[in-house]
Amino acid sequence: MAIIKALQDSYRIAVKDLLEFARNRIGLLFLFLMPFFMLIMTGFIFPTGDSYTNIPVAVVDLDDSQASRMFMAQLHAMNNKSGSMVLTEVASEADARTMITRGQVYGAIIVPQGFAENQTLGKQAEILIVSDNSIPQISMVMQGLGAQVISMLGSMKATMSVQTMNAQTNMTAEEAAAVIAPYKANVQGTVGGSLTYFDFIAPGLLMMIVMMGAMTGIPRAISHEKEIGTFDGILAAPVNDISIIVGKTIAQTVRGFIQGIIVLVIAMLIFGVHIQLTSIPLAFGLLLLGIFSFIGLGILLTSIANNEETAMILMTVLQFPMMFLTGVFFPIQQMPWFMQALSNLLPLTYAVTAMRKVMILNASVMDVLPEIAILVVFGAIMLAIAIPVFRRSMTR
């Protein structure tokens, strides 16, 4: 009977919190708008597969020879097919560098003097690629794109040369290409389709938004009720303190789960995030597990904080490093070793990793079992610590 009453009390407290939240029209509006705006901003700000098209590039022919003019014609012809660059011919290298400094172009492809002479002497003909390295990401794209284009043009030139030298053997273009480049890479992903950078960050955003809701919801709710005096009425009622924790946890779980569904739907419908239908139940299960793993931490911080403002400050201090150290926006593998070690101590890291495996790689429960175990253990430990601390805080 005691268990049934405790569950009934928890249910009533959860319903009370949800009804209060439903009456708060501004809060209800932002329940939907916050994940929507976050996804829209990150979805369009972070690069996708076609983000770096039509890159403005200056081209300079300092050699002005038949060979350099042929190179320029091939460069324009190839770019007309790919549309990767917007080429602007300028007279000198100084003009090209001035355009880069003024932000008119992101880089330059320069054919230096002696281009044709080096080819005649059987030497490699150098092509200069200048990029705006004040923007590292654009500079890397420009350097990679320029090197790729020049490599392809070089292969075309070499193929024609080999065919000319071996005309008597009737060598085909395919055979000539095999002589020049005997190895060809066939690059494939573990899943089909073309994935964008947003496919990488969407699972992390999903778990981060749920985590933020779970961590901030309970402190905000309890601290607010303490300040306006309604929490004293709950304590005066014949309600077990465990029922208070469970009831408020259920209310925040429902809110967090709704936000998670909103994020998932927006990611799939607007940004085309790939997720197998068979993975959706497991993804929802991970959402609930993510909420569970952070509820204890939220309760603990609520018990420590004296008021709502202090509680929110503590939440911000914890949330800020977790946003950047848990692989939500950037791969953990590119961080320094000491930051990777710190990342491995944060539970959100395992929540993000598990959700990414499920949403992108269609992983099964067994594939994410280590991450599930860590989240369950962390959540259980935090609750075991938080409940006694919360009980003591209610008597203060």
Rank of each mutant, 00 (worst) to 15 (best):
F338N: 08
M78T: 15
Q8A: 05
F200S: 03
G189M: 02
V210F: 10
L195Q: 07
I4F: 07
K248I: 12
G285H: 01
V377F: 10
Q333R: 06
F338Y: 14
T42D: 04
G285M: 01
L75M: 12
A67P: 07
D50V: 02
M1C: 10
E309T: 08
V210K: 05
Q113W: 02
S293F: 07
L289Y: 02
K184D: 15
D95N: 14
L33Q: 10
N344E: 15
T190W: 14
I26E: 03
Q148H: 07
G260L: 04
N170R: 13
A73H: 07
L121Q: 14
V265R: 00
P219G: 07
L206H: 11
Q104G: 05
G260N: 00
L300C: 02
Q340N: 11
M1F: 03
V352F: 04
M359W: 01
I242C: 09
M165A: 12
S393G: 06
K16Q: 08
M165L: 11
T230R: 06
T98A: 10
E117W: 04
Q119N: 06
M382I: 04
P203T: 02
V317Q: 09
A305I: 05
P136M: 11
N54C: 07
V365M: 13
A2K: 13
P347G: 03
Y183P: 09
G379R: 07
Q148Y: 12
L33H: 09
P238I: 01
Q334G: 15
S161D: 15
R97I: 02
L300D: 05
F338E: 08
N118C: 03
G327S: 01
M160C: 02
I262L: 01
L301S: 08
E20D: 13
P35G: 01
F292V: 00
F390E: 11
I313H: 13
P136V: 07
T196V: 00
M140V: 14
M165N: 14
P112R: 01
G144H: 05
G379C: 12
R97T: 13
G247A: 10
F32V: 15
N79C: 09
L361A: 09
M152Y: 14
M165Q: 15
N307P: 06
G146R: 10
A173G: 00
E371D: 10
N306L: 10
D199L: 00
L7F: 12
Q252H: 14
F292M: 00
S10D: 11
K357D: 13
I275T: 03
L348Q: 04
I332P: 08
I138R: 10
R220N: 09
G193C: 01
P136C: 09
M140S: 14
T249S: 15
G290V: 13
T190N: 12
L7C: 11
S82L: 12
A386D: 15
T310S: 06
P281C: 01
S134V: 01
F292L: 01
L28F: 06
I26F: 05
R97D: 00
M38R: 09
M99A: 13
L31I: 13
I258S: 08
G154C: 09
Q319H: 13
I209H: 03
L346D: 12
S82N: 13
I387P: 13
F44S: 10
L282C: 06
I209F: 04
G43R: 04
V358L: 05
L153D: 04
P136L: 02
A202M: 09
T326N: 05
T326P: 12
L205S: 04
I55Q: 12
E225S: 08
